[in-house]
Design a protein around this nucleic acid. Structure first.
Length: 424
RNA sequence: GGAGAGAUGACCGAGUGGCUUAAGGUGCUCGCCUGGAAAGCGGGUGUGCAGCGUGAAACUGUACCGAGGGUUCGAAUCCCUCUCUCUCCGCCA
């Protein structure tokens, strides 16, 4: 969420810049400003009342000790009114604060100045395209048919065990999954990322910290008996490692990577591009998460984009990089680059990575702060994350693009992980 | 799952209603001392919100001793609820 001080000092800027996200913030911002004034007035009264009460209590203590019981009882009588007053002020304070909070969390993050205007994915800006699209000829099969032909992914079996969107990887398919995970983790480590293996169930505080809760509650699987959520991405547990943490400026940049399965209910997206591996309820992903100094977070973002680009290049996949327009940008993001690879039999671009800078939006929820060298005051850090990479669509593109009469060729970089060069 | 014991600052640890402004120690840091260091001595050392200022700081008020309520003029301390940790038993990959 945006910090109240920033909204207070930059109300007009907040309103105008949120228009890029097609978000009309005027009413909310005005409500926030007036609630903020109300809150501060209320706090002043409350603090004064409590100060007076504290002073009296101390005096009463002294009077009792020196045996002046009558005077003490007299003073006690005076506190009654103050106590009632402070109770009321306390109540109104929490009420105002609650309202203020509920308004502030309604505001999305402010988009970066480079974010293009636009309403949908059609308005995203293509930053780079390396689309040497392979010629497959007429008899190219989509990946779900290849999966069946070589018996490497079993969608029906997943239906039996769980339901739609939970495929079973078999034989060389399972091994290829494992190879991709190891390849991605090894590459991340080479790029300076520290590997962590977090829990894949998280509590409500964690869900709030990265912004999944309260808005996107319906998108996560919820284990009601224990009040826990299955992670939709490793971003949630890995970023929340730093919840309520105060870093030193020289700790930056903090770079973590994690492999986790990811669980998404995908409510409301039934029937659209869900064939095969295109959209699943459970999938594997390696995520990279950075915590950065505010002055350097956009350099870090560029580094992350280059890093992800190196992965898709090494896998030999045709790709393009998009800068998301305001309308397509997520609620919490200030700037997002999407990576898409071309899946040649479906003749479709598939999103395989999303790399974002959240600036201090998540950090404010997380209370993730840092101190400059020698300074006492804390400041909010910047958080960033990116998929590096999400497996299913990578797999879909690899299968489709590398199919030959002899079988499916495995990219050279993966062969030392798979132990085979072809699926036949 | 059963029984018991706990949760105090960066860390250890005292504190059973007001001489607590959270003792004492460790760590860190600044100063003195020193050729330099160690030791020693002295000072400082949390977070949020608000006020005052606005370059920041300082200063003032307030809240925070696992979380949330309650009792009281006054709560780290008493009461209630919850969460978590440890020990033993049970179960178990």
């Amino acid at each position: 969420m945006l910090s109240i001080g920033f909204i207070r000092d930059n109300a007009n800027e907040v309103i105008s810049r949120l228009k890029v996200k097609n978000f009309d913030a005027e009413t909310i911002v005005n409500e926030i400003i007036s609630l903020d004034v109300e809150r501060r007035n209320n706090q002043q009264l409350l603090d004064d009342t409590l100060a007076e009460l504290n002073k009296l209590s101390k005096e009463i203590g002294g009077l009792f000790k020196s045996g002046k019981t009558d005077e003490a009882n007299e003073a006690k009588r005076k506190t009654t009114e103050l106590k009632e007053k402070s109770k009321e002020l306390n109540k109104s304070y929490s009420e105002i604060e609650k309202q203020l909070f509920s308004k502030i969390v309604e505001l999305p993050n402010i988009p970066h100045s480079s974010v293009p205007k636009g309403n949908s994915e059609d308005d995203n800006e293509i930053v780079k395209s390396n689309a040497e699209i392979p010629e497959l000829g007429g008899k190219a099969l989509p990946h779900w048919e290849l999966a069946k032909k070589y018996d490497i992914i079993d969608f029906e079996l997943g239906n039996k065990l769980t339901g739609a969107g939970f495929p079973v990887y078999k034989g060389k398919g399972a091994k290829l999954q494992r190879a991709l995970i190891n390849f991605f983790l090894d590459e991340a480590e080479k790029a300076g990322y520290n590997e962590v293996q977090p829990p894949i169930l998280v509590n409500e505080d964690s869900g709030f910290g990265t912004g999944q809760l309260p808005d996107k509650e319906g998108q996560m699987y919820f284990v009601g008996l224990d009040n826990l959520y299955l992670v939709p991405t490793a971003e949630v547990p890995v970023t929340n490692i730093y919840r309520d943490v105060i870093l030193n400026a020289n700790d930056f940049p903090v770079k973590n990577t994690a492999y986790t399965p990811c669980f998404r209910r995908e409510a409301g997206s039934y029937g659209k591009d869900v064939r095969g591996l295109n959209r699943l309820h459970q999938f594997d992903k390696v995520e990279i998460v950075n915590i950065a100094h505010p002055n350097h977070s956009y350099e870090i973002l560029d580094q992350m984009v280059s890093y992800v680009e190196s992965l898709v290049s090494k896998l030999g996949l045709p790709y393009r990089i998009l800068r998301l327009c305001g309308g397509d940008l997520s609620f919490t993001s200030a700037l997002t680059y999407d990576f898409e690879v071309f899946s040649a039999a479906q003749e479709k671009w598939l999103e395989v990575s999303s790399v974002s800078n959240f600036e201090s939006y998540q950090a404010n929820r997380l209370k993730l702060r840092f101190k400059e060298e020698g300074e006492k005051k804390t400041k909010l850090a910047h958080t960033l994350n990116g998929s590096a990479l999400a497996l299913p669509r990578i797999l879909a593109a690899l299968l489709e693009n590398n199919q030959t009469n002899e079988g499916i060729k495995i990219p050279e970089v993966l062969q030392k992980y798979t132990g085979f060069a072809i699926i036949d």
